[in-house]
Design a protein around this nucleic acid. Structure first.
Length: 561
DNA sequence: GACGAACGCCAC
DNA sequence: AAACGTGGCGTTCGTC
């Protein structure tokens, strides 16, 4: 059954509906103080909570030690249905934009302690009534899915997206265990003693002196790329930028200290003392995940650079005493997803029971693993140059179904047509100016230069759609993986999320579970079983495997791949 | 002083 | 390795 939450007449209304969306009893009025307990008490597996925005309704439940099994996040689902090709022409798509298309209201607290979240739940009593009707919206969405040309896929996608919203809220609530002491030691060893913001740390100051000396430029500011570029050119070095890869090609005494300076400067500015002060509270880093925040359906994170945690600082992610991390990484996820979605059995076989790139080498398509990887990424990104681009045709001969799928996606994009993921997430189409420029270029007043420019833009959009189908379907696999794992963990340890093994980190094809040490091996099994679940959910009986690397560690830094 | 572009590096 | 996809984010620097 559905239980739809809305804010009306100064309180909360819980409206029961059947799975089909028809009335199923009288609505219940709930006071704000009682809401977390109300939701937690009725959070059984038979109930699907329906709300406008998980990040608005779920945190107070979590703060009160509760959790729910399933939900419908109407705003996330609306976003998918709005553009889904399978629901083209539906009433939901032809209606003008309304409040449901607006982004979710900004959370009042972005970095909350338990106490703040609890205060927040109480504060909610003063919130105004909703100006939207979630019952009507749920019914509209159910009708849209039922009337679509791919109901079961869309139903699965919406369910996975909503499960993702629960995971995101739970990870935000739990936070990533973070040792400020380890982090500070690391900073001090690299940079020297802590200095106030705006002051150059001792180690950076020392290296700056060496750089100035070796470039014979006492006034050089190493923080300024244009300053550094000028100095390098004055020293006779033929560089066009100060990028790391370009400097690495050069032989000169200043290069080594310059690269070291850039490395440490990055550490200081991206994950230095400032970052630590701002983002780590009470031994936890609480990144705010944005489900479907990337156009392809991947997640994004808001604040703290959560999805770009440098490898070099992951050692500061330390499990609690008596707890461990289970770190799991899906090996070659995107090529495997491509093999399965295209029905390419040869490519699936290349990855069966081994590293997929090794399998590609074994197939004879290319000579080395590095070539296999370069060519595969080139095929998925649309490379035309370099070794990757050169080897793509060889891959195409060995795996015509897989390569054909991405080629077709690219051609569709070049024509300005939308493409879809396996479950039906649909790419945007280029804006009106793109089509206008194309028409102009091929009209009587079109010039050769205009046509070159238009073709270049078309190829660029084609690379986007080419990648969209693979990256987006991989994101769907990851949602299914996490959703299944979440359910498995919850079944074993009901009650507060943080009382038992729980997800604390996720980046596209990798996840981290914080678990009591005694359950670590069990969790590792569940992580693997969830990957099997995800493969079946998306690709049924197609013979594809999704091997994981799984390690049990005390700190995230020890989980190097 | 606010803002945005350019630059550059991090992640997958 | 630039080339070749999706992002976040901090710095400098020019403009208003």
């Amino acid at each position: 059954m559905h239980l739809v939450l809305s804010r009306a007449d100064g309180g909360v209304l819980a409206t029961p509906l059947t799975d089909a969306g028809t009335a199923d009893g009288e609505p219940t009025r709930v006071g704000d103080q009682r809401l977390p307990a109300f939701v937690a008490d009725r959070g059984g597996p038979d109930v699907r909570w329906v709300w406008d925005d998980t990040s608005r309704w779920y945190p107070p439940v979590l703060a009160a030690g509760g959790r729910v099994t399933r939900c419908v996040d109407l705003r996330l689902c609306r976003r998918i249905l709005r553009s889904a090709l399978a629901a083209r022409g539906s009433a939901l798509q032809t209606a003008p934009p309304d409040a449901w298309d607006r982004p979710a209201a900004e959370a009042r607290v972005t970095r909350s302690t338990q106490a703040q979240l609890f205060d927040d739940a109480l504060f909610a009593a003063t919130l105004p009534d909703d100006d939207v009707d979630p019952v009507a919206e749920l019914r509209a969405q159910l009708a849209t899915v039922a009337g679509s040309s791919a109901s079961s896929a869309l139903r699965l996608l919406l369910s996975a997206e909503s499960a993702g919203a629960l995971v995101a809220a739970e990870m935000f609530h739990a936070g990533l265990p973070w040792s400020a002491a380890v982090h500070e030691r690391l900073l001090e060893e690299s940079l020297g003693p802590r200095v106030p913001y705006g002051v150059r740390p001792r180690r950076l100051e020392e290296i700056a002196t060496v750089i100035r000396d070796r470039l014979d430029d006492p006034a050089l500011n190493p923080d300024s790329p244009s300053d550094v570029l000028r100095a390098l050119r004055r020293a006779g070095l033929m560089v066009t930028s100060t990028r790391k890869w370009e400097l690495q090609e050069i032989e000169h005494p200043v290069i080594e200290p310059l690269l070291e300076y850039k490395r440490l400067f990055r550490l200081l500015t991206a994950n230095g003392w400032n970052w630590l002060d701002e983002w780590v509270q009470d031994g936890r880093f609480h990144p705010k995940y944005l489900v479907g925040g990337v156009i392809t359906g991947r997640w994004a994170a808001d604040g703290g650079g959560a999805m770009q945690l440098p490898k070099g600082i992951r050692g500061a992610v330390v499990a609690d005493d008596g707890w461990k991390f289970v770190v799991a990484d899906a090996a070659q996820l995107e090529p495997r997803v491509l093999a399965a979605m295209s029905g390419d059995r040869a490519m699936a076989a290349a990855g069966d029971g081994r590293d997929l790139y090794d399998g590609v080498v074994a197939s004879g398509a290319v000579e080395t693993r590095q070539q296999a990887k370069g060519a595969m990424l080139g095929a998925m990104y649309g490379a035309t140059q370099g070794e990757g681009g050169r080897l793509v045709p060889r891959l195409a001969r060995a795996f015509p179904l897989a390569l054909g799928l991405v080629e077709r996606a690219a051609r569709s994009g070049e024509r300005g047509e939308p493409v879809t993921t396996l479950l039906g997430r649909t790419s945007p189409v280029p804006d009106a100016a793109w089509f206008e420029a194309r028409n102009q270029a091929y009209s009587v007043e079109g010039t050769a230069a205009m046509q070159r420019s238009v073709e270049s833009r078309a190829r660029s959009w084609g690379r986007f759609t080419r990648n969209f189908v693979v990256q987006g379907t991989a994101a769907e696999w990851a949602l299914a993986w996490m959703g299944s794992l979440r359910a498995r963990l919850a079944a074993r340890t009901p009650g507060a999320v943080t009382a038992g093994p729980h997800l604390v980190f996720f980046v596209h094809d990798e996840l981290v579970v914080h678990t009591p040490a005694g359950l670590a091996d069990w969790v590792a099994e569940q992580v693997r079983a969830a990957a099997v679940d995800a493969g079946r959910l998306l690709f049924r009986d197609f013979p594809i495997t999704f091997p994981l690397s799984v390690v049990v560690v005390d700190d995230y830094g020890a989980a190097k791949d």
